[in-house]
């Protein structure tokens, strides 16, 4: 029997879901392996239990917490999809500002009508089995995970830096050119897509395990940033992990 697959989204831009629909060449082959039972961007159908659930977006309100618990209960395998779901993503920048100010900026005088929480990755609330990182989630990475799950094997976790993938491609190093690049501490798996076209890495895939944060801040201050600015750079997608 084909595994039943569902997609859900939380706080995020839904760009990861759109990115999946962009698998023009592979989409039909992918669908041949699974029964898609819930996918808001693409269809409307519900099923009670799922073999593989993909969750996009971060947790940012009490209602999110309730919903993710429910989804977890109904899912055999739960996969966090994209930077918001895996690391908290851009949303987590709200965590480093006073929460009252955030509510006021967003909702104005209606702020008391909307309960809010600091933005969190899915793994802060429930157990997450696997992750597809990136903003938006990286397509080759998603394909690797998908094939692995179909075959019953563990997907790769890429616990090494984007620098590795730059070197494999012999890309010119942007740091040695004086740019601010987070490649040395950001998790690989994106095939260094940004540095490959001359754009510095901004850390959307989260950091390698046990990142030497002090050393990375030191590297960035050597390039002319203040410590404060350096930390902010690290926080862009990772404010949940990199508190002040």
């Amino acid at each position: 029997m084909k595994p039943k697959v569902a997609f859900f989204d939380f706080t995020g831009c839904e760009g990861c879901q759109l990115n999946k629909l962009n698998f023009e060449n592979e989409l039909l082959d992918l669908l041949a392996h699974v029964d898609l039972v819930e996918f808001r961007e693409a269809m409307d159908e519900t099923s009670d239990e799922y073999d593989i659930t993909f969750v996009e977006g971060s947790i940012s309100s009490p209602s999110c917490v309730e919903r993710i618990h429910d989804i977890r209960r109904r899912s055999k395998i739960l996969v966090a999809l994209g930077a918001c779901a895996v690391n908290g993503g851009i949303n987590a920048m709200k965590n480093i500002q006073p929460i009252e100010q955030v509510r006021e900026t967003v909702y104005g005088q209606d702020k008391y009508r909307f309960a809010t929480l600091p933005a969190m990755p899915i793994s802060a609330i429930v157990a997450v089995d696997y992750e597809v990182r990136g903003c938006p989630m990286s397509q080759p990475d998603f394909l690797q995970l998908f094939k692995a799950l179909v075959m019953g094997k563990t997907p790769p976790t890429y616990n090494y830096a984007v620098c590795v993938e730059c070197k494999l491609e012999e890309n010119e190093c942007l740091l040695t050119k004086g740019q601010i690049c987070l490649g040395p501490v950001t998790r690989a798996g994106c095939q260094a897509i940004c540095p490959g076209v001359g754009q510095a890495c901004i850390g959307c895939r989260g950091f390698v395990e046990g990142m030497n944060r002090e050393a990375m801040v030191e590297i960035l201050t050597e390039k002319g940033l203040s410590v404060d600015e350096a930390v902010k750079r690290l926080q862009l997608f990772n404010a949940y992990e990199v508190a002040v």
Binding site: Y160, A161, C163, V164, K167, L168, C173, G183, P184, V185, V208, M211, N212, E214, A215, M216, E218, I219
Partner: peptide, 14 residues
């Protein structure tokens, strides 16, 4: 050295 190293692997790969 470890205090300054971010473990990116550049030295190995190059």
């Amino acid at each position: 050295v470890a205090e300054r190293c971010v473990g990116c692997g550049t030295c190995n790969l190059m």
